[in-house]
Write a protein that binds this DNA or RNA. Structure first.
Lengths: 303, 303
DNA sequence: TCATTCTGTTGCCAAAACGGCAACAAAAGT
DNA sequence: ACTTTTGTTGCCGTTTTGGCAACAGAATGA
């Protein structure tokens, strides 16, 4: 396989050997063929690439320029063919994932680790952002796979898998609310609330929960990162409103407790796996989507 | 003229248009021809460059990679062809000159300025160094043209033109030696001498002059730049030994005076224009050599 | 000094690649 | 149901490419 004109390959070899016939030997072609390519190049460029010495050919100034460029091109070519070789079989060299923060913490790292063993040459681009941002990226093709919360229906997006995550309050183990097994929203009014900032709040599960009641919370802080919300809750500063997945690791370590909201009854946090509707994914990405599907199904609250 | 495979040009246009037939229209070829090039590329690369949609073609991940590379290559190609176009007619884009410091001051700038009007697109690489360095560069082809002092005969170097420059002492106008019209070496013994350093001294005219007599000078300073020697002499610190060309500008301004050495009789400072013996110079360089020849001949001491 | 051995170059011819034309199947728009 | 637009394929003439042999010129070896 070659991406550059054969004449350029011949040219490089002649420049290296300083002789048509030696170059022809190495290239396993007739010297006349090599000669013709060189003459053709010089004719079409209108510049002499070599000086003709009785002893062979030597690069002219123009030839030096040309040679440098051709060498760079050959380097590029080898590199490109190598990456394309990696892609062969997997369908791509890089899978671009756009996901909400919750996934970044535990689910994705584990899953990508396993996936990496099956496809060692596939790299990942992991963008974490809010639902709106994620859908935008998937729709425009900036991301191959998207995982977001409660997405609105969009024609250009194909929704592959979804799961309802438990939504509720998250507090430190020492917090009074940790005593009950379930919590009513009205009970939270008495404690400082650790809320997402305006941008995260828009379209969130919490927004819809609050919309269904007249309860007024007493905000203590508004954060633009779930990590910050959890840290404040862990420090016992107040009550946070998250889904079960957000605090999976902290629950396992006993650093936080999760108590589902009993009322109002809302269909809370839908975690949704999606991709572009009109695009067919590369093979490796298709495999990853399948693995993500089962991983997401497994997140359904037991019972 | 094109340096890349036609298939790549087709590929780029198809990627741009998203359609074989539209691309074929723009390329003024049949759609089937374009299609075959694409299929051939994909076959040889073993990777699908496009996804086939009912509405046309869309780049695959591999295709995106390929396109980026092809675009870079096309950019390189345009740029290279442009420079080669400049070279056409002049024979080169850059003339590399290696010259002694004396020339750098006045002669070369003026001459290169005039030359630049005839060949506006030709650039210069001007290396100033000592004779040994200059000859080395000319011999190895690092420089196209060399101008040096008193070169030893070397087979690989072709000496084109030479001129004998007046050699003598250089002092400030207020210096006692400025009174005489000629100076004997023995008279200099009484004044501090401003000399070149060991490296500059080796092989210099001054070295040969001193070798022919038993005079012992009283060194004040050893410099590795003629500019420094002249500055010290201009400040009246002592007597310097230079050729007429070195101080041409200072003589014109009356800042220094030049007094030829009367004895011993030496063939002093031979300024020599040279180039590589086995190389044929580019056209523009050949012209510059001719202009340098007349300029150097004009340096001969009047009378 | 002559013969040999390099060099690049060219004419002739076969093989391969390329491009144009027409036709086909499939899907989208009307 | 019709038209339009898509990519694709078979056929055929043209163009390009490469191999073989021979040539002219210059350097090298005996």
């Amino acid at each position: 396989m070659q991406l550059l004109l054969t004449g350029l390959r011949y040219f490089e070899e002649v420049a290296r050997q300083g002789s048509l016939r030696k170059a022809a030997d190495r290239l396993h072609v007739a010297a006349s063929a090599v000669n013709r390519q060189i003459l053709k190049l010089e004719d079409e460029l209108g510049v002499a690439l070599f000086e003709r010495l009785p002893r062979g050919l030597r690069l002219s100034p123009a030839g030096e320029l040309m040679l440098a460029q051709v060498r760079r091109w050959q380097h590029d070519e080898r590199q490109l063919l190598e990456t394309l070789g990696d892609i062969r079989g997997t369908g791509c060299a890089e899978i671009r994932i756009a996901a909400v923060e919750s996934l970044t913490d535990q689910v994705l790292p584990e899953l990508l680790g396993r996936f990496g063993e099956r496809f060692p040459r596939v790299r990942f681009a992991l963008h974490t952002g809010l639902t709106e941002d994620i859908l935008e990226r998937v729709a425009t093709g900036e991301a191959d796979i998207g995982i977001c919360m409660n997405p609105p229906p969009i024609r250009r997006i194909r929704f592959i898998e979804a799961v309802e995550l438990g939504f509720g309050v998250v507090v430190a183990p020492s917090h009074p609310l940790a005593a009950a097994s379930e919590v009513r929203l009205s009970e939270c009014r008495d404690y400082p609330a650790i809320l997402p900032d305006a941008e995260m709040f828009r379209g969130s599960t919490l927004e819809r929960v609050l919309a269904q009641s007249d309860i007024e919370l007493t905000p203590l802080a508004g954060c633009n990162r779930i990590l910050a919300i959890k840290s404040l809750a862990r420090a016992g500063l107040g009550v946070a409103f998250l889904n079960a997945l957000d605090v999976a690791r902290e629950l396992a370590h006993g650093e936080l407790v999760f108590r589902p909201l009993r009322n109002p009854r809302v269909e809370g946090a839908r975690l949704v796996l999606c991709s572009a509707a009109d695009r067919s994914l590369p093979m490796a990405a298709e495999v990853l989507v399948e693995e993500l599907s089962v991983a997401i199904r497994a997140l359904a609250p037991r019972g």
